[in-house]
Write a protein that binds this DNA or RNA. Structure first.
Lengths: 143, 143
DNA sequence: ATATATTCTACTAATAAAATAGACAATATA
DNA sequence: TATATTGTCTATTTTATTAGTAGAATATAT
C-alpha cells in the first residue's frame, strides 16, 4: 500500500502539473491543502521533501508558493514515490536505490522469494519509472 | 516492502514444500525456526495464521508439527502474502479482497493515481497469483 | 503417566506514520 | 520601511503497526 504521505504527494504534484498549464504563477500550500483535502502542516513536510529533491520549486513571500521544479515530462511517478515512501522493491536485496543484503538470507542467488519478487519489481519499476507526471495528467499510463 | 512476517512465512512454507517431497511427516516449529533463523515465537503466530486460512495443516502432540494444508500446486504466493501482509493493492480502491473507497478521493473514475496503480496492481497480481508454491520451489516464475 | 507439540491469551518494546504547534526568515508591495 | 504574506525549520504529540516475548492450556503418541 502507498502511505498517505505518498498519496498526498502525488495528489499535490498532479494538481500542480495541471495548474502549470494555466501559466498563473505558484500555488500556495494553503490552497493546495484545501483543494486536495490534505492536512496543511503535513503537506508542508511533503512539499519540502520534494523540493529538496529538485522535483518542486518554491518561492517565498507574498505571491509565493509552489510550482514544478522541472518539466512534467521529466518527472517520473516512480521518483516521487521513492522520495516519499522509500524503495519500490519488495525486498531490500532488489533495490537499486537502497540495496542491502537481507538479514535472514542464506544465498541471494538461490533465494526463491527474491526470484519471484524480482519479476514483480521489474514490472512495477517499468511502469512507475516510465510513466511521467505529464502522462499521468493526460491519463496515459505506459505499459 | 514485504514485512518480516510475510518473508518469514514464505521462507517457512517454501521449506515445508521442499520437505513435503521427502514424505517424512510434519515439521516442528522449533526445527523450522532453527533452519530458517526465524524467532520461534513469532513463527508460531505466522504458522497459526496460515493454518487458519487452510494453507497449512498442523498436528498436535508428540510427532506432530506442520505440513502443507493442500497441494503445493494449489497454493499461490499471492495468497500467502495477502494473509500475512494484507491486500496487494497500492490503494484500497483497487483491492479485490478488501475494497474500500479512498478517504481523500473525489472521483474514482478520473483519479490519475488509481489509473497508474491499477496497471501496477494488475501486473503484480498476475505474477503473484499465478505463481504457485510448486513453481517457487522449482525456481519457475510465471510471466 | 509423561514427554512432546501446537494453541491460546496476553503482553511489551520499538519503530514508523500521521498530524500539529510555533518561532523564524524571505519577499512583494503599499 | 512597515506590514502582510508565505515558505522553512525544529520540536512534539498521537496513533498505528511491526516485531517479538511469556506462560498456561490443550492434544497426542508411546
Amino acid at each position: 500500500m502507498l502511505s498517505k504521505k505518498a498519496k498526498y504527494g502525488l495528489q499535490a504534484i498532479i494538481f500542480l502539473a495541471k495548474e502549470e498549464k494555466k501559466k498563473q504563477g505558484p500555488i500556495q500550500i494553503a490552497s493546495l491543502a484545501k483543494n486536495e483535502k490534505i492536512p496543511k502542516k503535513f503537506l508542508e513536510i511533503i512539499l519540502l521533501e520534494l523540493r529538496k529533491q529538485g522535483i518542486l520549486h518554491s518561492k517565498l513571500g507574498a505571491g509565493g508558493g509552489y510550482s514544478l521544479g522541472k518539466a512534467a515530462e521529466k518527472i517520473s511517478i516512480g521518483q516521487v514515490v521513492r522520495i516519499l515512501d522509500g524503495p519500490l522493491a519488495q525486498v531490500s536485496c532488489l533495490s537499486k536505490t537502497a540495496y542491502h543484503k537481507c538479514d535472514e538470507c542464506k544465498d541471494e542467488k538461490t533465494c526463491e522469494i527474491r526470484k519471484i519478487m524480482k519479476k514483480v519489481h521489474e514490472t512495477t519499476t517499468r511502469i512507475l519509472d516510465r510513466t511521467t507526471l505529464a502522462d499521468a495528467v493526460k491519463g496515459k499510463v505506459n505499459f
